[in-house]
Amino acid sequence: MRDLTLSEIERLQVDAVAAEQPFVMDEESFRAFYEETARPLWAYLSRVLGDNAMADDLVQEAYYRFLRAAPDCETEAHRRHYLFRVASNLARDHWRRPRPLQIALDEAGEGAVVDGSQDLAADTARRKDLGRAWAHLSRRDRELLWLAYAHGSAHREIAAALGLRTASIKLMLFRARKRLARLLRQAEAEVGQT
């Protein structure tokens, strides 16, 4: 029988350890991290992809890849950016075509039109406009705008989450914001005409 080389023994030992304790992060730390990030991560994937079912699938995949990669993060913020970077890569891999937002308009929002509650009706209308405008944006624009204005991330954080240079973010975000503003005005104009 062939003798095992040292590297093979080392690899088998590493695999055995991996089978015993598969992740560097322990369960307690993961719990805290998951509780903090699961909802924003789902929101991000759902709105970037425009597909809630796919967001459900990709959230778990993102956590799995994050845990497997065991990034050496100094702070919680780094850890969160790394997770969003994994999610962004998954979104890129699963991006099919631009889709509108799957806006779940709540009953209050729909009923407001009937009840005459102006604020809620206006809010519902604005969300519909956003849904229509969002459908015309590219995946990259959606990611940038969501991270900048829904999360409130700084340019440096957006760059870390998307794997881009911080210097590029300024121009890309400017263009994406211009596009969305124009599309929103178009959507409003279309509604006004009808």
Binding site: W42, A43, S46, I103, A104, R127, Y149, A150, A181
Partner: peptide, 17 residues
Amino acid sequence: EIAPLLNGEHTAACHEA
């Protein structure tokens, strides 16, 4: 003009999740 819309959508999506 944009940020309140997206922020509102973020809140709604987090509730929906």
